[in-house]
Computed example of a mutant assay.
Amino acid sequence: MPRLDAAWQALERWLGATVLPAQCALCGMGCPEVLCPPCRAQYLGHSRPRCCQCANPLAGTDGTPLCGRCLRKRPAYDATVTACDYAPPVDQLLLQLKFGARLPLAPLFAQLLAVAVQQQPAWEQPQLLCPMPLGPARLAGRGFNQALEIARPLARLLAIPLQPRLALRVRETRAQSGVAPRERRANLAHAFAIAPQHGGLLQGCHVGIVDDVMSSGHTVNTLAAACKRAGASRVSILVVARTPPH
């Protein structure tokens, strides 16, 4: 933890001094760091009990590690770590990265995730990291993959090898946010494949999938299932923000 805290402070000083305006990215108050201390403490300075498999908030505090949904039907992935809820005003930071191309925010999200990982008492370190892939058309339109931009600094912080081309999105799909909940699973059918040249890496491997936001979980579940079919023994999800269930 001391090493991560020092890295956090150094990162915020560097971003604030060289790349981002000298103001808090959330409240706009004059600040030499990416986030001012009050915003960091209010919105990112605390954790909550979560399901260890899907990271949805747990209503009780009886020590039960899984939510009712995961108890009823286990997803293809085995664990999820998230840094925060996808809720105002933190969601605006992720939107600034994804649609505003504020790429200097990606190391901030990586640092948040690294701290969240360090806070997991029984965390099993993946052997490699795989960013959630974008389809060719969406990648060309956006110009970057936000999951990869987060995964690069995260891999360095956690000292885990990154395989940026391990997974491929072989079928263009509609954005899950624009698809009715009952159609989301079908929207992702056969969307992912493991790159043939990297398939051998997955035999008996623990893979960490990195993404910016996890909502219904269908996207990461579909990719996790593809990893399992290719021989992965365990799949963990590392996602910056988790959308609370409605």
Rank of each mutant, 00 (worst) to 15 (best):
A6V: 15
A7W: 10
Q9T: 14
L11W: 05
R13N: 10
R13T: 12
A25P: 07
G30T: 12
G30P: 13
V34G: 13
V34E: 11
L35T: 02
L35Q: 01
R40Y: 12
G45W: 00
H46Y: 13
C52E: 13
Q53K: 07
P65G: 11
L66G: 02
C70G: 04
A76D: 05
Y86M: 09
A87E: 15
A87D: 10
Q92F: 05
L93G: 02
L95W: 12
Q96I: 10
Q96K: 11
L97C: 05
F99S: 06
F99P: 07
A101H: 13
A101N: 11
A101Y: 07
P104A: 06
L105N: 00
L105G: 04
A110H: 04
L112R: 11
Q118V: 14
Q119C: 08
Q125P: 13
P126K: 04
L128Y: 04
L128R: 02
P133F: 00
L134S: 02
A137W: 04
A140F: 08
F144Q: 08
P153K: 00
L157H: 11
L158A: 09
P161M: 05
L162D: 03
A167W: 01
L168M: 09
E172N: 11
P181H: 10
R182Q: 14
N187R: 15
I194S: 06
A195W: 00
G199F: 00
L202Q: 02
G204E: 00
G204N: 04
C205S: 06
C205V: 09
G208A: 02
V213C: 02
M214R: 11
S216H: 07
H218S: 14
H218W: 10
N221S: 14
L223W: 05
C227D: 03
L238V: 15
